[in-house]
Nucleic acid binder design. Structure first.
Lengths: 217, 217
DNA sequence: GAACGATGTTCTCGACCAGAGAACGAAAGA
DNA sequence: TCTTTCGTTCTCTGGTCGAGAACATCGTTC
């Protein structure tokens, strides 16, 4: 990483590892998962503990999330609380189309799934909350890219190789801009289809996407 | 700080500064508030931005919280989601006693107010969510201390000076243990009275306190 | 009960990174 | 236009973060 603060990125990795762990998780498990030294993980957990971002079970000395996150989440101004704003429309849309709805937000290295509203059916479609979808090969990613400022999109795409692929991608992006939404078939997972539309904030920046996800008919 | 990761602590300071800022906040404002160099703040914001913890208004290039926090908060296991569990009982209690209810959680350097349920009245009692109450001089702090393991409480208290004060404090702590709750008059703010009771998690560790806060009769 | 393996925690030391401060560019106000 | 203020970039140096080993403490196994 040639920008930003390295050790903080590590700390956030650790925090997210704890967050996504199915239950309490210990120092060694985190260390092997992230490929770090135990001592480093331990020291990072100290600060996170100190600041209330994680809690420690003193019996097992394993870690889980603390309340601080909820406190901070609560502090996001209501007017730009994407999650809260999306909740109603998402379940309405799910009831209307009878398919799974997926909400995702823009991050630098991809599109992060932040919420799902799963249709009532025996067949659950498996997009897990927290997953990171690629920009170049997901309906959500491409929809967001299409509505970002030119240079920002280019910057996010400079890892995409291949002239031919880029041409195809650019055609899709302009189609997304033209029709306001984009479909994609089986890119994230074979047999799974998605239709995505962009979400803008108060200042008209594209900050995420909402998608209907279903199986091939 | 003789433990933990320094730069991460700074990053969290910045994150919390953004969180508690009434609206969008810029690099310089954060830097002066925390007494750091602008360049350092800027670099930290890069990582936080990269990871989705903050968002950047590209018009003003000021910062506010991102969606990542809400995603993580959502991931805390329901069974130990203090905030969600407390919501119902808090408003019940408020309606019953007709006073403001305050929920707080244990942190290393004090007791953090994580939620309030304000009674309907023209006179709002001012405990702001996010404030850090001292261990030694708040009903909440002392109640939590009283129900912590001995050595942990001692460690948190080693900054408290004065033989006489310590004796008085210890008497209050044992009273809190004996009667299960503790009152305190005007310690946090003159004229404001509080009664606090401890909250335990599934493994019987004291993780927070709930308090009724009101004015002197 | 001794030997073992796995865990969390502490320690030391060197490479390297984070932070201070200055400098730049741009935007806003006077 | 001049001035001020802000965000961003640059450079250099001291401090600090990470690897690895050592220690402590568990359960487990024989």
């Amino acid at each position: 990483m040639d920008f930003g603060v390295r050790s903080t990125a590590v700390a956030l990795d650790i925090l997210e590892t704890v967050a996504f762990a199915p239950k309490e998780i210990g120092v060694s498990a985190i260390a092997t998962e992230l490929g770090l030294a135990k001592s480093a993980v331990f020291r990072h957990l100290q600060t996170l503990l100190d600041r209330g971002y994680v809690r420690r079970n003193s019996a097992t000395s394993r870690y889980r999330l603390g309340v601080k996150l909820q406190l901070l989440a609560q502090l996001t101004a209501d007017e730009d609380n994407l999650l809260a704003a999306a909740e109603g429309p998402m379940s309405d849309l799910r009831d209307e189309v009878g398919e799974t709805i997926v909400l995702s937000a823009l991050e630098r290295s991809g599109v992060r799934v932040v919420a799902t509203s799963i249709r009532n059916s025996m067949l659950e479609i498996g997009v897990r909350v927290g997953s990171l979808l690629p920009f170049a090969s997901s309906a959500q990613g491409k929809t967001i890219l299409a509505h970002l400022p030119r240079e920002m999109a280019d910057q996010l795409l400079d890892s995409v190789q291949g002239e031919k692929i880029l041409r195809k991608l650019n055609r899709e992006l302009s189609r997304a801009r033209r029709q306001g939404w984009l479909e994609s078939a089986g890119e994230v997972m074979p047999g799974v289809n998605a239709i995505a539309a962009p979400i803008f904030d108060a200042s008209d920046s594209c900050i995420g996407a909402i998608a209907v996800v279903g199986l091939f008919a």
